[in-house]
């Protein structure tokens, strides 16, 4: 029997639905012309550098097929690296090489690849295999992110990332996404990743959702999820909040990872952030969005916005 909630229950919880998100928030606060800034990771990266935001260091980017043929010797000088399509979505086309084994490149899963495999992957990216609508794309080669030891054992073959919804510059809701065996290293909730609600105020973990059900332990490693401790929470919030000035988009999802050595890094931005974050937090976005809308008439700098949000959006 399919269990359905009464709409009044969702309304009570302040859940934001897809229709309202599209019409009232994305449609009203995100200008179409600004989309390329976030849909193209290369543009996001260059913009972030201009604003002094830390991002995973880009080693190189490829735009033409002939560059692929000449890349072999250079790749062999690297230890680990990540290859990403600039216009990919949902984690498609991302190849992570964690170490080397002679001439072979070793993936996070332990599978090893030859140079020709890497070259084919690069060609596929340039041909637009992973980009929206199949348009020609750019391949980005980045340094590897080193997982923070505090997160060891929480994420299966992937680095956990922190998604924060930024509405008119205010952080309104946050969650951490952990890859699971079922999600195959991907961090999207509908692909089977685990969502962990995070209190905006304190950075403490609230609730965990896995395949639409509440859980307490990681399904693969069985570690208790409540114990996760987020370092540098204030810096993370500041980094996310400043994306508003950077892009001019009013309703975005910021994806942030924590590098062992460099701290919080801005991974990418999303102009159409998903709604599952509400389930992970056990509360709806609407009351918080209304609160921000009532206040955002006057522009305030990021520090003030974060301070207000941390005061306002307390879990209890």
């Amino acid at each position: 029997m399919i269990r359905l909630l009464r709409p009044s229950r969702l309304k009570e919880a302040g859940i934001l639905g897809m229709n309202r998100r599209n019409l009232h928030y994305i449609g009203r606060y995100n200008r179409r012309s600004l989309y390329p800034l976030v849909d193209d990771k290369l543009q996001t990266k260059l913009l972030a550098e201009k604003y002094g935001m830390p991002t995973p260091a880009m080693l190189r980017h490829l735009t033409a097929q002939h560059e692929v043929a000449a890349i072999g010797p250079w790749l062999h000088t690297l230890g680990g690296f990540a290859i990403k399509p600039a216009k990919g979505s949902g984690g498609k086309g991302i190849l992570v090489i964690t170490s080397r084994e002679g001439d072979r490149f070793v993936k996070a899963s332990g599978e090893s690849l030859g140079l020709e495999d890497i070259e084919r992957h690069l060609s596929n990216i340039l041909a637009g295999l992973y980009s929206l609508g199949g348009s020609p794309d750019t391949a980005i080669i980045e340094t590897l992110i080193t997982i923070d030891p505090r997160f060891e054992g929480y994420s299966h073959e992937g680095i956990p990332d922190i998604r924060i919804i930024i509405f008119q510059g205010y952080p309104v809701m946050a969650m951490m996404r952990l890859a699971t065996h079922a999600s195959d290293g991907k961090a999207n909730l509908h692909q089977g990743a685990l969502g962990l609600g995070i209190d905006i105020s304190s950075g403490a973990c609230l609730d965990a959702i896995y395949q639409n059900e509440r859980i307490l332990h990681h399904p693969d490693t069985h570690r208790p999820l409540r114990d996760i401790d987020l370092p540098e929470w204030h810096n993370i919030l500041m980094l996310a909040a400043r994306c508003y000035e950077m892009t001019g988009l009013g309703y975005i999802g910021t994806d942030i990872v924590i590098d062992r050595d460099r701290g919080p890094l801005l991974l990418e931005l999303n102009a159409r952030p998903g709604l599952s974050i509400q389930a992970a937090n056990g509360r709806g976005l609407l009351p918080r969005l209304h609160a921000v809308e009532a206040r955002a008439e006057v522009y305030r700098p990021p520090e003030e916005r974060v301070a207000w949000a941390r005061e306002q959006f307390r879990a209890q």
């Binding site: 399919i2 269990r3 359905l4 909630l5 009464r6 709409p7 229950r9 969702l10 309304k11 919880a13 859940i15 639905g17 897809m18 229709n19 309202r20 019409l23 009232h24 959702i209 639409n212 059900e213 509440r214 709604l275 599952s276 509400q278 389930a279 056990g282 709806g284």
Partner: peptide, 20 residues
């Protein structure tokens, strides 16, 4: 096109909200 209420599937998608 102006409907901003919940979709029927969302009543199931957010079913974890029930327990609270």
């Amino acid at each position: 096109g102006q409907y901003t209420g919940y979709k029927l599937t969302e009543l199931r998608r957010f079913r974890s909200m029930e327990l609270r």
